[in-house]
Amino acid sequence: MTQRVDLATVMDRLAIDEVITGYAVAMDDADWPGFRALFTPDGRADYTAAGGIEGPAAEIADWLAGTLRPFTVRQHLIVNRRLRIQDLGGYPGDRAELRADYLSPLRHESGEDLMSGGGFTFGLLRGEEGWQLRTVTVQEKWRRASVPAGLG
């Protein structure tokens, strides 16, 4: 590979990392317009394996807004990112897939703590707006709730 291709790949990796981090931050900050902007116009997400819904990004944003509203503390950590950018004969293409693990501690307004973990698969496309999410699939692997003292 040439230095130019290597640099383009590094720039793509940084841009994709920004999208994935933006996804987590948008959920934590309840920035639903920002969440929607991360997706392509036909972008979709599937939360059914975590007890949620599947549908267009706008519908998912509305569902997440309602589901997360009672949680006064939200933290979505997306870690162990494994990225594959489409290879067009040694040159980066306009498609990518990122698989990552997540850990999500939440605090409900009642004082109950909820913690879950699992994996994400993000399908990304590069367009005029840069890299955006086309698909998001969540696979919850575990969940634990703790009841505050005196309520159990």
Rank of each mutant, 00 (worst) to 15 (best):
G111C: 01
M27Q: 13
E129H: 15
T9H: 12
G34A: 05
S116L: 15
T21W: 09
G118C: 06
G90T: 05
Y102N: 06
W131S: 09
R4S: 13
L103M: 11
L124K: 10
F71C: 00
T67I: 04
T67C: 04
A100S: 14
I78S: 14
L64T: 08
D31V: 07
L7Y: 04
L151F: 03
R144F: 08
L7R: 14
G52V: 01
G150E: 09
L68Y: 03
P41N: 01
R74C: 03
D101G: 11
F71G: 02
D101P: 00
R84I: 03
W63P: 06
A26V: 06
R107P: 00
L106K: 04
E97D: 12
G152Q: 14
L151D: 14
L64P: 00
R95P: 01
G66H: 02
L77E: 08
L14D: 12
T67S: 13
L88R: 14
L125V: 15
F120D: 10
R36M: 04
R74W: 05
A96Q: 01
H76K: 09
A50M: 10
L68C: 08
Q3I: 11
H76V: 04
G130L: 07
A96I: 03
R107A: 05
G150S: 09
P105L: 05
G51A: 01
A24K: 07
V136M: 08
L68V: 06
A8M: 10
A58Y: 00
E109K: 07
D17S: 13
T2C: 10
L151Q: 15
V79S: 14
P33D: 06
T135M: 00
G111F: 02
R95H: 14
